[in-house]
Amino acid sequence: MPDTTAAPPDRRRVSVGAALDSFFFVLAGFSSVWLAVLLATESLGLGWGLLWFAVLFWALLAYLVLPRLHRILTRLYVPNYFIGRTRTSDGLLGDPVNLALNGSAAQVHAALAAAGWTRADDVTVASSLRIVSSTVRRRSYLQAPVSPLLLFDRVQDFAYQQEVADNPAKRHHVRFWRCPDGWMLPGGHRVDWVAAGTFDRAVGLSLFTLQVTHKIDEHTDIERDHIVASIRQAVPETRIVLLRDFATGYHSRNGGGDNIQTDGDLPVIDLRAMLLPGQPGVAGAQVGQAPGQPGSVIEVTGLS
């Protein structure tokens, strides 16, 4: 078939602007390394100012140099298609995707609110200031923003969290991404949303980026099952399709250097039968699409 070897239809055009951007991006990465060397050299000549300069050096390294180097390197060798893992803003592998949902945005929001979850604010100047002020005044900030993680090349659409006993270092949290139109999970399951739920157990230093961040609990399956159980309890119409061994079970690390382990099961939470106040007809019409009775759990296991 000689025809098929002709010019591929969507060959990427390399524009001058994109090439320039890449050049500056990489040059900035190398320059920042040089700046770190300059600051380190300078700090050796400062006697009493050493501590102050060391803090500056750490901030530069953790928040500017390492992220840029990670960005450059991960762009080269971390795959950008769906592998069941989110990515941090530096391009490192982040929390595992361990939930999927079917239903409208309104249904997802209503179900989570009913299950006692609080929506996290977006990261803005105002919310950042509020984190600082609530930390200083030791007040809790229920809607504190969560850090951005990327899937489908974009930041989560929204995130929900539950505080634990007035301890700002610990919290349940789950991030949601709307799947692109027509997109299917590996294995051909069509879902509307995928989500990544993890439990923050402490505040600490990230191993790879040296940044201050939340450390997550290793047992991500417990958090996953907690989210599913809380929604099932609050919304009796929920159906669960449990994809057994969706991924192989694994032990690994996320972008912050925390261990994670999972059995690889993926629960699909089906909220399409959920009745919303004010529009009962719409939800009722969709009941036929969802498999199983309200409240049922269907397990899907591999055939071979």
Binding site: D21, F24, F25, L27, A28, S31, S32, W34, L35, L38, L39, E42, G45, L64, R68
Partner: peptide, 20 residues
């Protein structure tokens, strides 16, 4: 060093990092 051009070099590098 701080006495020569460290401040301006730092500013240039930070500008490049931010804008790229």
């Amino acid at each position: 060093t701080l006495r020569t051009s460290l401040v301006s070099v730092t500013l240039d590098i930070l500008i490049l990092l931010a804008l790229s």
